[in-house]
Amino acid sequence: MYPLMLTVNGTVHDVEIDPRRSLLDLVRETLGLKGPKKGCDHGQCGACTMIVNGRRINSCLSLAVTHEGDTVITVEGLSEAGELHPLQQAFIDKDALQCGFCTPGQLCSAAALVDEIREGLPSVVTGEVGVAMTNEEIRERMSGNLCRCGAYNNIVEAIRTVSGDKR
């Protein structure tokens, strides 16, 4: 067992863990936060997406023991003071889900996406002049989050609404 201290949604946790435990299993099983989902457990579906030190990652492909001192945000940490995150409200308003299993990962991914665009991080479809929040950009940047119900069109619309770009 290895000691680990990390912050999840603002709470500091001090635990002893098996080094094989993924960050996803740590959060779900050890800390009891069931928002992040285990879809494929191989980094292909994005249902486990968390934001670690400001960057979204597949928490299923990351050993918890490597996250000493890190700051983690899960879907439970997106809302503030009982208020839904604007993306959560937009997902409701735009009907951006059916079964909802992928939604926690979609939301974390989208929240990080909004920050990445603000930061000016390019994607492969970004031109020379900078990032515009087009459908093409959103689709490319969300390609790591699968939705087996196929709510993609509404997910893209929800994210575009929050970005403030109405094209």
Binding site: R55, R56, N58, A112, E116, V124
Partner: peptide, 23 residues
């Protein structure tokens, strides 16, 4: 890298997903 080695930036961004590239 974006300025002088655009082929490298473009290749990297063509690979995987944002989640995987972050890690």
């Amino acid at each position: 890298i974006r300025r002088d080695y655009p082929v490298l930036s473009s290749a990297l961004l063509s690979g995987a997903t944002q989640q995987l590239r972050n890690k």
